[in-house]
Design a protein around this nucleic acid. Structure first.
Lengths: 163, 163
DNA sequence: TTAAGATACGACCAGATTAGTCGGATATTT
DNA sequence: AAATATCCGACTAATCTGGTCGTATCTTAA
């Protein structure tokens, strides 16, 4: 059913979290994981993959954490998918692997490749910034009355969700 | 990686096979399976799912088999996917299932849904007829010198597609 | 009437993939 | 030195998937 892996979900959540964090400082794996109820170790694993792919930068030590390596408008959803799950492949034969038993006789290879290209285009067009523009249900879009000087913007208080 | 299941691949192969079969008569599961080197029982299972979804009609008995229930231009790739793997869902929460542990805090649900909608649109737009229009690599498009009297009309191939 | 060729259906198994866990190493700030 | 981090690999458990098997039923043709 063309489902995204859970790790990819987590990666996108983290990317959006970082993109919409007004403070724009490093967030730790623990912080992100707890915000969204994700197992910490798993979140950490996902984040290091994003670092290795160049989408995040990391900083160790007491006030370390992760930051976006690029402005959110320049990171595509496709890039995040690929960072976690490897190249986008709808079928076994998409990337050179002629391991599919039907390879020589397959009659849908080329048409499917075209469909895949169109899907890849959609994912490449959609940026993290666009996702971040979407109002976060658990964090009201705009400061309604709080943060007079914008110190701790309300987005952070995802913990104080409605009961 | 958004990969199609093997069963879906097989289903699409079968659909295209039927769509581009010039004879336009029922093809048996065995025939299709052998053409593409697919395990017969598995092919049969896939085909019955397509029947149950109304994309094929079946006919039992000695000269039975499967036929397209509709003209190929009216069956979308999306319909085939759904017949085999159920509704298209990129994420766990797409269709009402609030079973995802992150449901209440998820910040990417709505944006992802929009992405999914766009992908679904692509799959809905692409018909089996379009796939069949694509030349089948293992079956050269036109009879080069055979069929002296045109019993097996050479026009069949992709040429005879134009509603 | 019977044999052959076909679909229909459900149960089952084995391998692969995925989600999640654990333990330990290393870096950085206080 | 202690606390808070990332980093890394190995491991387990659960789920999913591809594929198999057995059996029942239908339909045609000899």
């Amino acid at each position: 059913m063309l489902r995204l892996s859970k790790k990819t979900d987590y990666a996108l959540m983290a990317m959006k979290h970082l993109a919409s964090d007004p403070r724009r400082r490093a967030a730790s794996a623990r912080e992100i994981a707890e915000t969204y109820d994700i197992p910490v170790e798993l979140m950490a694993k996902v984040l290091t993959r994003l670092v290795r792919s160049g989408l995040l930068t990391s900083h160790q030590g007491v006030h370390g954490g992760y930051e976006l390596a690029q402005p959110p408008a320049e990171t595509s959803v496709a890039a995040v998918l690929e960072a976690i799950d490897g190249p986008l492949t709808m079928t076994a034969c998409t990337h050179g692997d002629h391991e599919c038993a039907q390879f020589s006789k397959c009659n849908v290879r080329d048409p499917l490749r075209r469909v895949q290209d169109r899907i890849a285009a959609i994912l490449a067009e959609c940026s993290i910034a666009e996702m971040a523009a979407d109002p976060d249900p658990s964090a009201p879009p705009v400061t309604l009355m709080s943060s007079p000087a914008g110190r701790r913007a309300p987005t952070l208080s995802a913990a104080s969700r409605e009961p």
